[in-house]
Every structure is written in C-alpha cells, then in structure tokens.
C-alpha cells in the first residue's frame, strides 16, 4: 500500500534529496506497517521526533509501536517547534 510521509523543519534533511523541496515522499509499505516501522529506518535522532501526526491526529510516543497505517495515510513529523 502507499502512504505519504512528510518531514518538516530540520527533519527535511532526512528525506531523499529529490523529496526535500516539497517535504514529502510517497512510500510503498507492507500491510501491518506501524508508525515506528516507517520512522526507524530514517535514523532521525529520537529527541527530534516530537510531533507525530497521522492524518492530522497526534500519535503519542507510547502508541507509535502499535499504531498501524492504512492505504493513503499521511504521516507528518516535526521536531520540537513553537510559534505565535
């Protein structure tokens, strides 16, 4: 199945070069793939994987190992950020 991963702010550097301009990459993953399964191979420092959203909904750290992704899901991740 296809999912989209979006990495923002400093995490954009962990995307392949061609995907950095739009901060997103469409990936093919197997059934039963979890949020952690997608994040782990990207080798991002754990403390920078702060705000993790699936289809805009926050996934808390404790749920990332078990939260399964489905076809068309959008996984978006930010380091600790703020604004106002």
């Amino acid at each position: 199945m296809n999912i989209t991963i979006k990495l923002y702010a400093t995490l954009g550097d962990y995307l392949p070069l061609e995907a950095r301009r739009n901060n997103r990459l469409v990936m093919q993953v197997g059934d039963d793939t979890t949020v952690t399964d997608v994040i782990a191979p990207l080798n991002m420092p754990e403390k920078l994987v702060h705000l993790v959203l699936v289809n805009g909904h926050f996934v808390p750290p404790a749920a990332r190992n078990t939260r399964k992704l489905t076809e068309g899901d959008v996984l978006a991740i930010w380091p600790p950020i703020a604004g106002g």
């Binding site: 979006k6 923002y8 702010a9 400093t10 901060n23 403390k47 920078l48 702060h50 978006a76 930010w78 380091p79 600790p80 950020i81 703020a82 604004g83 106002g84």
Partner: peptide, 17 residues
C-alpha cells in the same frame, strides 16, 4: 529544542504546515 533551535532557525512561521 524550541527556543535553542526551532525558533532561531525557522521562526514562528514553522507553524504554517
């Protein structure tokens, strides 16, 4: 990480996405 890195690098505009 926010006041030491996030805000100086990307400013408040990082919130848009």
């Amino acid at each position: 990480a926010v006041t030491g890195q996030g805000l100086p690098t990307y400013g408040t505009q990082v919130l848009m996405n």
